[in-house]
Design a protein around this nucleic acid. Structure first.
Lengths: 178, 178, 178, 178
DNA sequence: TTTT
DNA sequence: TTTT
């Protein structure tokens, strides 16, 4: 039932490594990527050019996770839109740790014709999980049914509409999360 | 099937007048509002404070149009997220005119407890037409079915999932559009 | 002195043609580009794929205008951040017309290694007119002084910090604005 | 020299507690706030309404830090625009920890006439650290010099243009950061 | 007028 | 036409 407040992130950057895709007990895919953005500036004193790279952990669920896992590669340039989520987890020392991720709701590949290291000529389509059809276009039509099946099928397929497990995301992620 | 490119607008501003809601032949609602944002600066020469108000035409379709028409009022402060759309229409002189609007996909009332003229204590919920359920939350569930019926029923109701007319938006808008 | 409200546009799209740069009496550059984004969807009835292209008029001022005019080309993919501005102008029939543009405050080239028609290997730097140095980085340092001079010098250069003419933007644009 | 990529966060939410302002050795202010956004949805199985609150750590530097510290209060509703930054710090056990924050570059108070617990009738102005003057308005003029001095002076004032300490942000923040 |  |  909607939300209160706005929690929105927009990134344009490059993947530091290939995506990692896992599958939830339900069969739903979960893909993680790491995206770099960088700030550059000249040092005031020395005039030397400086650079700081920021790494962003981005997570995709379900259909968009399959697409991300399939088409993105190390070096790919992407547009990411999503929301911030901070997860709590237990370190091996039993202490609480927190990890902040961007849960991606919309992704778009920005490489002209395959960039990264690999030769991926999947075009520059984008894949909206929650598509907004404005104006004259048909509205309210959910995007849940993938029209194009991803090339690699998930290990143990289940129903068409993968859902989150009752136990939540963490239930299959019993490891240090990054 | 998604989109190519990104076309996103984010506004926070106040309504200049009450919303106007019409209904399409299909029964779907269309609400228009006018939102003001302003820039302020000091004149470089004179040091005099300057202000320029920008008026934005925002249009809502279907369920979110009903909500906007119901809860927003002149003076209401809103958060609007949407996309730009430029419509072509015919002036009375037969010449082409163009109007650029923001097609709203997400709206949020920002008044603490009802603002505008009316006493509307509907809280500060927001209403996403295309809700993004990240993380552990259920996904893929369309928001098409209004849980709360709008106060004023549309003139001639039709199916539950109102659609755009075959002839497009303009077919019922035979007037100067603003 | 800041602003009231939020007026923000984010675009990712391709230029439909080469940029057009003019110079204001003050010497400041003004560059216009046209950016395409598109929505794609399947017709509900026929199942036929549909596409609608949206064209956005984007205008740059001063230094960022020089950069845009220099490095962007027809076909270039760009990230644009800016604000909406609707300008009123007089049609040849003496009637008022309105044109809505995005005034660009931040631009980023998204082509891997030069795109458009030309061979421009200027990398994928971005050019912020109003740079935000967060964290440990130096703040408050204006980006007004171009480090790299644009290739084509403006016709009649003036002071280092080009300003808007007293008469405003329109004073040198006495024609139909698009 | 700008940045490569886009790293942008937009939040609208309420402060969970009063802001905390510290001063860097240089005299520059640093203010931290905690902002809540929430997602609401109905459980698919039970139909029970669910809610998850997300807390965001937001940090302000220099002039905007003074304004945030001065005008925001517990409960205040704010619009925040900024960028993500993940900081590494040492836990008391000597292990590395990471904290992700939003470095705010633009803030806007959204309460009609003072909200939080306190009576703050400072209006709903916004304060841009990096103001974008589009169109006819003067450009390139940095916003570094505060026109209105904050009510509470920093402990040991220094030059007009507060800078980051040589040792960086962490040099005065020798504690667990949250 | 771009792009796929 | 709003808002401050």
């Amino acid at each position: 039932m909607a939300s209160r407040g706005v929690n929105k992130v927009i990134l344009v950057g490059n993947l530091g490594q290939d995506p990692e895709t896992k599958y939830m007990p339900s069969g739903g895919a979960v893909t993680n990527i790491s995206v770099a953005t960088s700030d550059q500036w000249k040092d005031k004193q020395t005039g030397q050019p400086q650079e700081r790279t920021e790494w962003h952990r981005v997570v995709f669920f379900n259909r968009i996770a399959e697409i991300a896992g399939e088409y993105l590669r190390k070096g790919s340039k992407v547009y990411i839109e999503g929301s911030l989520r901070t997860r709590k987890w237990q370190g091996q020392d039993g202490q609480d740790r927190y990890t902040t991720e961007i849960v991606c709701s919309e992704m778009q590949m920005l490489d002209s014709r395959g960039a990264g290291g690999d030769n991926n000529n999947y075009g520059q389509d984008n894949y909206n999980q929650n598509q907004n059809y404005g104006g004259n276009q048909p509205q309210g039509q959910p995007q849940a049914q993938p029209q194009q099946a991803p090339r690699q099928a998930p290990p143990q397929q289940q129903p068409q509409q993968p859902q989150q497990p009752a136990g939540g995301f963490d239930s299959f992620d019993d490891d240090i999360p990054f």
